[in-house]
Simulated assay, not measured.
Amino acid sequence: MKFRLTFPVKSIEPKISYGQKVMVMGSCFAEEMGNRMIQDKMDVLLNPHGILYTPAALVHAMNTYLEGKIYGSSNLVERNGLWHSWDHHGRFSDVNPATVLSRINEHQNLAINYIKEADWLILTLGSSFIYSLKENYKPVANCHKFPAAQFDKRLLTLEEVITSLDNMMHRLFFQNAKVQILFTVSPVRYVKDGVVENNLSKAILIQAVHHLVNKFNRLHYFPSYELVIDDLRDYRFFKEDLVHPNDLALQYVWESFLEHTWDASSRELQQQLEAVRTAIQHKPLQPGSEDFKKFLSSYLSKVKALKEKYPGLDLERELAYFGTADK
């Protein structure tokens, strides 16, 4: 008897590998996956604009990198003593406008240079709903808790999503001839828009992405949305808000992501690094015992071997931790 529907996940070609540069942008789900890649020592630039939910916000952010845009004071707005950028997530906001601009432009310069050399761009689309300022029709990436009366909300059309992504990618390919793009659709369910409305929003994103993937041979799709919504398909795989996938669901998607988008040697290295990370988290009952010193010494040898085999990996923290065995 079957209690859940599984489906074959198509592996991408070429695959992601260590030594490549990967830019990850998009929703809070992109943060989850991107942080796991960073944790596993992949060369990743994650959300230089902060969390972005809509294709419009992602396209705009990418265009600023391709144009080499540097932000100035005219790009900031103030409310209740806090300064914000309409283009950025609230993590950049601050009481000091100079601090906001410093944070923004630090990440902006990183992204401007990184995108020219990136091997992969991973885009996680969250919602087709956008908010625009009523005063000048400017779409915003984040409303920053300004009064709702200042914004118009509408659903992007399929044509708008396809056209904006298509135009941005042509500009990107002109500057970076090698970059591959991997699309995912976030399984986070934005029920604040309404259940029916959320499904319509996701449907537009999915149709747009598949239209583009079928158009370009360097575009790929990973079914994170389908793995959670159609495969797991149970509220026990969601957090208490019944909106965000929980740790169990994220781990399930992550394991599938590794299997179908990373090459074999990179998966092997990832497993070794995961074992090292687990060892660091081990809490000994007797830190000064000979057994624990042997444990440290054993892993120190393993980390040194990894460093010798992969000199580009940053393993200084691990070497320092296990190196206490020599002291």
Rank of each mutant, 00 (worst) to 15 (best):
Q180N: 13
Q20S: 08
N109C: 09
N75A: 11
N75C: 08
L82C: 10
S297M: 11
E274N: 13
I12M: 03
R171E: 13
K304S: 04
H260R: 14
F3C: 06
K2V: 13
R91S: 15
D247N: 10
L66I: 12
Y225L: 12
W83G: 08
N80M: 12
F174M: 01
N167L: 14
V209S: 07
L155W: 05
I115T: 07
N214C: 07
I112M: 04
E117G: 00
D291W: 03
L227K: 11
V140Y: 04
Y310S: 01
K153E: 11
S73K: 13
I104H: 00
A149W: 01
Q271H: 09
D166C: 00
L315Y: 07
H211A: 10
G90I: 09
K138L: 13
M23G: 02
F92Y: 14
T261P: 04
K327Y: 14
N246F: 03
M169V: 14
K283E: 12
V24K: 03
L296A: 04
Q270L: 14
L76G: 07
S132K: 15
A61E: 09
H260N: 15
G194Q: 08
S73I: 13
L242T: 06
S27W: 03
K283I: 13
D40T: 12
P97V: 05
S74A: 10
D43V: 06
A61M: 08
L296F: 03
T99V: 15
I280W: 02
Q272I: 06
T6Y: 07
N105I: 04
F146L: 15
A275K: 13
E31A: 12
N63V: 09
L306E: 08
V191E: 11
A149K: 13
P284I: 07
Y252I: 07
P97A: 09
N142E: 10
I229F: 05
I16A: 01
L46V: 03
P147G: 06
I70C: 01
W254M: 04
H170C: 01
M42Y: 14
V44T: 10
K134C: 05
Y190D: 10
F216D: 13
M169T: 12
N176M: 06
S298E: 14
L315F: 07
L58P: 01
D43R: 05
A56I: 04
L242M: 15
A279C: 04
S301M: 07
I204Q: 02
Y299V: 00
H84K: 02
R91D: 14
E78Q: 15
Q150P: 00
I130E: 10
G323A: 11
Y131S: 13
V276I: 15
H260E: 11
L165S: 03
R171V: 00
E274A: 14
S74T: 11
E197M: 04
I280P: 02
S164A: 11
N47Y: 03
E32Q: 14
R103W: 00
V161S: 01
S298Y: 12
L46P: 05
P187H: 07
L66E: 09
P311K: 05
V191S: 12
M23S: 04
Y71F: 15
P187L: 05
F238S: 08
L66V: 11
N75T: 04
R189A: 08
E255P: 00
T261W: 09
R233D: 15
A118N: 05
E226R: 05
K307F: 00
T184N: 12
V253S: 06
Q20A: 01
A208V: 03
E13P: 01
R171Y: 01
